[in-house]
């Protein structure tokens, strides 16, 4: 990539700024390949004598990262699937079907958009306990989906409102019912909105900490961020493990993002601006 001459003054400011912003990543990755003694010297510019890949092997086995990643994947898959199954039909119903009380139901959902999950955590915990869903991935998925539904419905509804009514009418004259219109006409049309919904719910679920902290108690059901915090507080005496464990948690997402960055960025921006 050859920089344009016109860009040079801006690049002179932007390149150092970018370096500072990614510096924590670089420092972590370099430190994660050092021995405990090298970290103990505390010189951020020093490179490791030999690359300690062993740190990763140790962190992986000690921290149980395979399980944590597995749990996180199940968690994300569950949330994304349920979000699509609930929000797409609901968004359609609230935009393309006229029925008494429609506005009411919509406002009830919008109300949820303003209530942070921290503010309902005590009874939410009781509900989950009552249903036997505490300490289970099912429980966390249902709670997260319920928390995400207001946004998802808002997003899908705004998108469907933008689809001309003529399309629905034409389909109805052809004798199609709402289910058929939704699945055959609207689903293919709404790929961008669904893509946004998938990306936003996947990212927020993957990174969620508060609900897992409260709901997922035993280590065998915990998700990655929670597992890492537990790992970091158990092994504070071993910085090499904490550093390599941390890199394990963020590297896969970063690689996935770089590979899909255009779609990812589009989905995220569109979704956020609509929602």
């Amino acid at each position: 990539m050859i920089p344009s001459r016109k860009d040079l003054p801006m690049l002179a400011a932007l390149v150092p700024a970018t370096f500072v912003i990614v510096a924590p990543f670089l420092w972590l990755i370099i430190s994660s390949l050092k021995t405990e003694a090298e970290i103990g010297v505390g010189d951020p510019f020093a490179l490791p004598d030999a690359l300690m890949w062993q740190n990763y092997v140790d962190a992986w086995s000690v921290g149980g990262f395979a399980d944590l990643i597995g749990n996180s994947l199940i968690n994300v898959a569950g949330v994304v699937l349920l979000m699509l199954l609930t929000c797409v039909p609901a968004g359609y119903a609230l935009s393309k079907i006229r029925f008494p009380g429609r506005e009411w139901i919509f406002y009830a959902f919008i109300f949820g958009l303003t209530i942070p999950v921290q503010a309902i955590i005590i009874p939410l915990y009781q509900v989950l306990t009552g249903l036997g869903l505490i300490n289970s991935l099912t429980g966390i998925v249902l709670a997260q989906v319920s928390n995400g539904i207001p946004f998802g419905i808002f997003l899908m509804r705004s998108f469907f409102l933008g689809v001309p009514n003529e399309l629905t009418e034409a389909a109805r004259i052809d004798g199609a019912n709402h289910f058929q219109i939704l699945t055959q006409v609207f689903l293919p049309l709404s790929m961008p909105a669904m893509q946004a919904l998938v990306i936003i719910s996947a990212l927020s679920t993957w990174n969620d900490f508060f609900l897992p902290l409260v709901v997922l108690i035993s280590p065998d059901v915990q998700t990655l961020p929670l597992g890492l915090v537990r790992f970091a507080s158990t092994y504070t005496t071993s910085y090499r493990l904490v550093f390599s464990g941390t890199v394990i948690t963020f590297l896969p997402v970063i690689i996935l993002f770089i590979l899909t960055q255009r779609r990812f960025t589009e989905g995220l921006t569109q979704g956020a601006l609509k929602g």
Binding site: T86, A90, L94, I121, V127, L142, A143, V145, I153
Partner: peptide
Amino acid sequence: LLAPAIALYAVFSLLPIVA
């Protein structure tokens, strides 16, 4: 079409808000 969303939302969001 709304039932799944309403059911989840009522149990895990609305009920806790009131409670």
